[in-house]
Structures are given as C-alpha cells and as structure tokens.
Amino acid sequence: MDPFVVLVLCLSCLLLLSIWRQSSGRGKLPPGPTPLPVIGNILQIDIKDVSKSLTNLSKIYGPVFTLYFGLERMVVLHGYEVVKEALIDLGEEFSGRGHFPLAERANRGFGIVFSNGKRWKEIRRFSLMTLRNFGMGKRSIEDRVQEEARCLVEELRKTKASPCDPTFILGCAPCNVICSIIFQKRFDYKDQQFLNLMEKLNENIRIVSTPWIQICNNFPTIIDYFPGTHNKLLKNLAFMESDILEKVKEHQESMDINNPRDFIDCFLIKMEKEKQNQQSEFTIENLVITAADLLGAGTETTSTTLRYALLLLLKHPEVTAKVQEEIERVIGRNRSPCMQDRGHMPYTDAVVHEVQRYIDLIPTSLPHAVTCDVKFRNYLIPKGTTILTSLTSVLHDNKEFPNPEMFDPRHFLDEGGNFKKSNYFMPFSAGKRICVGEGLARMELFLFLTFILQNFNLKSLIDPKDLDTTPVVNGFASVPPFYQLCFIPV
C-alpha cells in the first residue's frame, strides 16, 4: 500500500478516535471549553503556568470542569470545598494515580508514587510505618536530621561569610537525610558517588519541569519514536535504579534480621516474612523503585522550600529577627534545636507554614484518578478519569488567608500570638494520596531553619526591599529566582 495512503488512514483513525473520546459521556461530565481534535484544549493552557490557566477557566466554568490534554480527559478541581469533598470525603474513590506514560515506562507500575490498587496500598502502608518507626538502627529519624543539620551548619561556616548561592548546600542536606534513612549512610558533600546522585536528581527535576515532558505524557507515541530530553530522564532513572540495586545486594549479604539498620533492611525482612506468599507485593523490584521514589520526592521539594525560605527571610528581616528572638528565648545557644521545641515556638512554626503556603511549591499536585465511576456534584466521572487538583486555589484562598499574595506569618497566628491551624494548609496535597514523607519534610524544615538561624545572621547583597521573591514557574514547580547571601556567624 502507498505510504501516503497509510499515513492518511492513520491520521484519520487518530482523528476519529479523538472525536469519539471527547464526545463520549460529555453530557455527564462537568462543563469545559470545547476541545480541538487530537490536541484537545492545549492551546487554551499556558504550559509554563498551568495553575494560572486553571484559575482563569474556573471563573468561566465553575469549581469543577473538564479539560482535554491531547486525548487525555481530565476533570479539574478548583477551590477548597471541591478539593476537600473529593480528596477527603470521597478519598477512596479519588485515590488513584493519574496516567503518566513516562513514569509507567520507567517504574513499570512498581513503587509508591505511580503505583495503584493493592500494590500501592500495601507499599504505602509499609513505608509510612517504617518512616514513623523511630527505632531503626537504634537511631531515631530526628537524630538523623539533627546530625545532618549540624553538618549543614559546618558547611555554611566554610563560606566564611562571603557571598554564596545556597542551592547546592541546601540540596545536599535533605538528600543526605533520605540516604541515611534508606542506606544507613550519609555522605560527605564532596563524595563523588553522592555528587553523581545529586546531579541525576537535579537533572531529572529540570527535565520533568519542561513543556516537552508534558507533551510526551499527552502524546506517548513520542516516547519511542522521537529524540528528546525524555530519553535522558529514562537513562538517569535507570542509572539510579541500578545503583540502588547494588546497595540492596550489599544489604542482603550483611543484614541482621533482628537489628534492621535502615529502610532497605526493613523491606528485606518483610520480604523474608512473605516469601511463601506468591501474591506478595514485597519484591526486589518494588524495593528498588520505592527507594528511588523516596529519593526523588524527598530531596528537591525540601531543598527548594529551604532555598525559598531563606530568600523570604532576607526580604523580611523583621520576621527573621522575631524567629531568632524566639530561638534565643526557648533554645538558647548551648544546645541543639529539637522537635519538642516546636510546641513552644508558635512564631517560628507560623513562619515555616507561611513559607510553604506562600511559595505554593507544587501548584497542581500530582494528578489523581478516580478508581470507579463516581457521581460528584451531579456529574458522572468515569472510572480512570484523571483528576487535576489546584492546590493554589486552596493555599491562596483570600477568605482563609487575607492578602494571600503577601508573605505574612500572621496567617497562622491567632490574636494572642498562638499558632493557628488551618484546614486550607495543603502543600502536601490531601486525602489518601497525601505525601508519604510529610512528617519528615516538616521535621527537616523546622530543624534546618532553626539550626541555621541559631548559628548565623543572614545578610543580603542588596537592599532587602529590592529582592525579587516572585516565583519562577516552570510548569511543574514554583522555584525561587537566583540569589546570593552571606551567612554571618553569630
């Protein structure tokens, strides 16, 4: 058959498939802009700032609406009420993970971030239990974070109060905490193996944040037939998995079943207990991918939040002064901060919360999916439909947070200066898919920041009023603009 005829037939089939998918069930789905064949609503979305586009569309179609990214149908949730109703009140029905062709290629359905069903539930339950087990290797997770915080302070001392970009050092600290939990080992910041790991993690975040990856996920045929950065992403992930597998083999040879040292040991012990169960989800494949998931999810998000926190503290020296006064009063100079201190430091706690609220790190979270046909607000959402959640619409709700575009710790303080919780605080998402490392991340943010401010004054290279804190939105995360500062020993 003539190649031209084959091409026309293929394009015609794709067009018909697109029209059929977009028209099927439209009477039951939430409203939304009319999609174009094949490309859907992509032309109506700013790929570099999806969150802003969703906010604009919500003003037209309401808090629940339908979009098509290519052939992929998505239902968008915008605003606290619908997000709570879906992710919390109907948590089980909305607990699936959205379709990610690239991740599915890399992870093969294993791990904790992109798995679904029984596998996801069992691996998540085990990971939560293990991360909360403060007795691994007779050292609590808090001990590990405190140790890394001391190392971080010593690295900052080496800058000798000269101007520096904190990106690298602030990236090393949370990565080392995860390494300590998974591998029972922290690395020197100049260790070549550690630097290679950091390089792969950072490069992957840069790649994932590009519009090209959005295109690959919406048109998965590209993955096999086109060159691009997605190939580098898959190569980096394969490198990390190979490295983790080597460490798993080392653990198998040296493990003491009665004295687990780290996450890998705990997983291997669980595998041993379930070795007679042919349906067990505790396999080497799941261990390797879960460890890679924890490394990827637990490094860049925390380091970016820390980097943004220091920029905001530079911009608002009056806030920094209040935090340091609270540190001096509650902790002093002669001991290290600990998590028990947080309950006695409402202002510092409010500042950490406000940093996370203000920066809105992951504006749309990772997409969910419905696990069955769901009736939601008089609409029928078919099983498997991807759910896109606007966390921006919750964290920047102007009824809950007056002047949401302003950095103001009073958003989390009552009139008496006591810490005030808010149900709208969802930087880790909400419901059954809430970030498994939430507790660890909150511990790291509090301890790293208090250790830094206990030991250093922060000095800006320019007038604080002239510092730009506008986030650089890159399609996946909101990151701070480049800046330098000086760490002046107190």
Results as ranks from 00 to 15, higher is better:
Val8Trp: 15
Leu9Met: 11
Leu11Asp: 04
Cys13Asn: 06
Gly25Thr: 13
Gly27Leu: 14
Ile39Gly: 05
Ile47Leu: 15
Lys48Cys: 09
Asp49Tyr: 08
Val50Tyr: 14
Lys52His: 15
Asn56His: 15
Thr66Gln: 06
Leu67Pro: 02
Leu71Ile: 10
Met74His: 09
Tyr80Leu: 04
Glu81Pro: 10
Lys84Ser: 10
Asp89Val: 09
Glu92Arg: 06
Arg105Thr: 07
Ala106Glu: 04
Ala106Tyr: 08
Gly111Glu: 02
Phe114Trp: 07
Asn116Met: 06
Trp120Asn: 14
Leu128Arg: 12
Met136Pro: 14
Arg139Tyr: 14
Leu156Ala: 05
Pro163Leu: 08
Cys164Phe: 12
Ile178Trp: 04
Cys179Glu: 03
Gln184Gly: 15
Phe187Asp: 03
Tyr189Asp: 03
Arg206Ala: 12
Pro211Asp: 06
Phe219Val: 10
Leu234Gln: 06
Phe239Trp: 13
Glu241Gly: 10
Gln252Val: 08
Ser254Ala: 09
Phe263Met: 09
Phe263Tyr: 13
Ile264Thr: 08
Cys266Ala: 14
Ile269Pro: 00
Glu272Leu: 12
Lys275Arg: 11
Asn277Gly: 10
Thr283Leu: 07
Ile284Asn: 07
Thr299Cys: 11
Leu306Phe: 07
Leu314Ser: 07
Pro317Cys: 06
Ala321His: 11
Lys322Val: 09
Gln324Ala: 08
Val330Asn: 09
Tyr347Gln: 02
Val355Lys: 00
Leu366Val: 11
Pro367Glu: 01
Val370Phe: 02
Asp373Ile: 02
Arg377Phe: 05
Arg377Thr: 03
Asn378Gln: 14
Tyr379Ala: 04
Tyr379Glu: 00
Tyr379Thr: 04
Lys383Phe: 07
Gly384Thr: 04
Thr385Ala: 04
Thr385Ile: 02
Ser390Thr: 05
Leu395Lys: 03
His396Lys: 15
Asn398Arg: 13
Pro402Trp: 05
Met406Phe: 11
Met406His: 06
Asp414Thr: 11
Phe425Tyr: 09
Phe428Tyr: 08
Cys435Gln: 01
Val436Thr: 07
Arg442His: 11
Asn455Pro: 00
Asn455Val: 05
Leu461Gln: 11
Pro471Gly: 08
Gly475Leu: 12
Gln484His: 10
